[in-house]
Design a protein around this nucleic acid. Sequence first.
DNA 1: AATGAATGAGCGTTCATTCAT
DNA 2: CATGAATGAACGCTCATTCAT
Lengths: 214, 214, 214, 214
Amino acid sequence: MGVAAMTAATSTRTTPGTGRDRRPRRVLPAEVRTDHLMSAAAELFIEKGLDATTVDDIVAKAGVAKGTFYHYFATKADVLLALRARFSQDFTSRAAVAIEAVPQGDHRARFVAWLRAAVATYVANFRLHDVVFHDFTHDRRRSQEKDMVIDQLSQLLSAGQQAGAWDLPDARAAALILFDGMHGVVDDAIAAGRLDPEPLCSTLEQMLGRMLVR
Amino acid sequence: MGVAAMTAATSTRTTPGTGRDRRPRRVLPAEVRTDHLMSAAAELFIEKGLDATTVDDIVAKAGVAKGTFYHYFATKADVLLALRARFSQDFTSRAAVAIEAVPQGDHRARFVAWLRAAVATYVANFRLHDVVFHDFTHDRRRSQEKDMVIDQLSQLLSAGQQAGAWDLPDARAAALILFDGMHGVVDDAIAAGRLDPEPLCSTLEQMLGRMLVR
Amino acid sequence: MGVAAMTAATSTRTTPGTGRDRRPRRVLPAEVRTDHLMSAAAELFIEKGLDATTVDDIVAKAGVAKGTFYHYFATKADVLLALRARFSQDFTSRAAVAIEAVPQGDHRARFVAWLRAAVATYVANFRLHDVVFHDFTHDRRRSQEKDMVIDQLSQLLSAGQQAGAWDLPDARAAALILFDGMHGVVDDAIAAGRLDPEPLCSTLEQMLGRMLVR
Amino acid sequence: MGVAAMTAATSTRTTPGTGRDRRPRRVLPAEVRTDHLMSAAAELFIEKGLDATTVDDIVAKAGVAKGTFYHYFATKADVLLALRARFSQDFTSRAAVAIEAVPQGDHRARFVAWLRAAVATYVANFRLHDVVFHDFTHDRRRSQEKDMVIDQLSQLLSAGQQAGAWDLPDARAAALILFDGMHGVVDDAIAAGRLDPEPLCSTLEQMLGRMLVR
DNA sequence: AATGAATGAGCGTTCATTCAT
DNA sequence: CATGAATGAACGCTCATTCAT
């Protein structure tokens, strides 16, 4: 490092405390702490990215000491895993609620309900989605999380199939096309700034609906 | 170089070439060197991942000094960018060749040609694909690279549309569904170890073909 | 930490404390650690120069891990800043003590006290001085540090002025001439190996004293 | 390096030429080349500092290839040395011219001429001065360059001494005080943005003149 | 449980200098 | 003379994780 360069920049780092003004030690229920930490991490992951977010950042935002983080999560990667599980759980739940609101027999309407819930949930949470599913590679691509969603949709499609609502050669393949096709169209819209789910839903309904024919 | 070091009697910097076991200096055309470096990087990225691959690994594999790497790429990220461009170029070229091999007027067949080329190329190169497209986020999701591919397919679809081969409300949306649907199905197959493109192609042809109706 | 590394089965990052020959972890008061690090840095800066001293050198000498250095200083340049502040503080304090030892009314004697303290302190610490003030440029030449010293001397001169001990058109300019003139003569003596402050003091007393006339 | 961080930045580095558009080889007189290189270096040193200026920067500015630099200077430090010599030469010459313009016998006026020339030259070139004299340490403080200037002034003072114009116990010490005192006052003015030499000269004339008494 | 000082392997990048052409 | 590709030692800084208190 050159001399000139050295003193040009002035540091902003504060000298570590001399031990006086310590944070008061607060004991909190484990669930609350876990939740605080996960939320802090989620916000930071979204804001600055996974790698750019340090454990220091997380604990600073959560207002706890570094060691506390490691009481609740074995590694930094574990928070991500927890967030991912939570995300999928939420996604599937919302879709389930939407589907249940439709009469059992109307398979087409149930598919539309799924589609609309999926689009709405995805548009609303794509930033977190990006973060928690960022590091999927083929090794782990068929993850438990994606499988949860695909299975849900597959079952819906299979039910319609058995009821004669449509005729699909491969329910899983169909589910994958519907799910990933939806993703693709919504991603494109997001990238273009079109965040209103409505037009996306009608386009998708029309296009994807064609696949569900007898 | 530090100021103090500069005017001190003896520089602290070791003169390159003082050691015994020096690498023989080989001057190579820029293109060749670039290519060597990119290939070495690609193999390593696939083998151990992006982050786990160090620049040292790359230059060791390419058989050059570290500085040589930085002679051709400003940062490690740049190699990735270059690989990405090369990948997309290759993908599009192969698809184009396949399409051109089909008579102009047969739009359905041209689509199938695209599909088969896409599946084949993807299955053959998914590992590199995973690496070079790993860090796409919504900020840059609508990338130049994906757009190249989507545009190619959109044009194919639009041509068929104008010729009355099918009737699509939105060619770009259709292209996205076809492309991402294809990806989803192939990814699932890859994850399951079904690497033979043939069955994938027929399923996809059947399912996706349904969207292309009058 | 890289994304790929994170969710891979085994992290590539070596867990600290895996090795055999680990340094025993010693927790020390922040002030003590800071002081150790600063002293180690000062000695090395003097010995081998600023640039030639690496952070590795400093931590080796201080007997701590590298990370510990960065726990207390944001950058290498920060230690220099801290040393500079400490140096000026010390210089001013010594001069103040010497001045206070002289009766309030004897302004001439107070100036001589300042001069002798300044020469003595400078001769005793010029090596550290050289290091910490090495990279002053006009941009920051009028630094807080030099200003502390100049202000102290200016005030002494102004007090004498008001008491009618001498007549100066510009106290600050006078302070600068006295201070920098002192520096120049002492530097020349140091360069020539004449490190005894006594002859320097008498020459300076005589020469500089001429400026302090009614 | 993290994945997210990697592609966030886009490189600006141009791929090295493929060998076509090479610079035309121009053979120039050695002196001209030397001069071009020194001037380019000087501007860059002033602009971005010594360390921050790379040999690449210099050759880019001078419009020559890197190897050419090493034809004319053995090391980067050598350019600085050359600039320093040139600077001192210039300083002494200007002072000499100013002194010679004054009648031999008028020693007081000769000193004033020196002072005014020195202030004017220094104010006009302090940026280059800062750069070329930046890395003076006590080891080399009594440099050939400073000695040239001090000797010149010492001789002027000794001549006045012998002629009975003033009475100084130590001509060299006096020269040092005058020179460094001048520096200190001018530096302070520069730092404060007072770049007009006139007021500086009168203050200095008055203050420093007091030392030159019988 | 909670704290935060301490650890240290690791990596990307720089750049003066060399030398084949 | 001139060129610019090639070299490689060096270094500052990061940050997940540990553990004494």
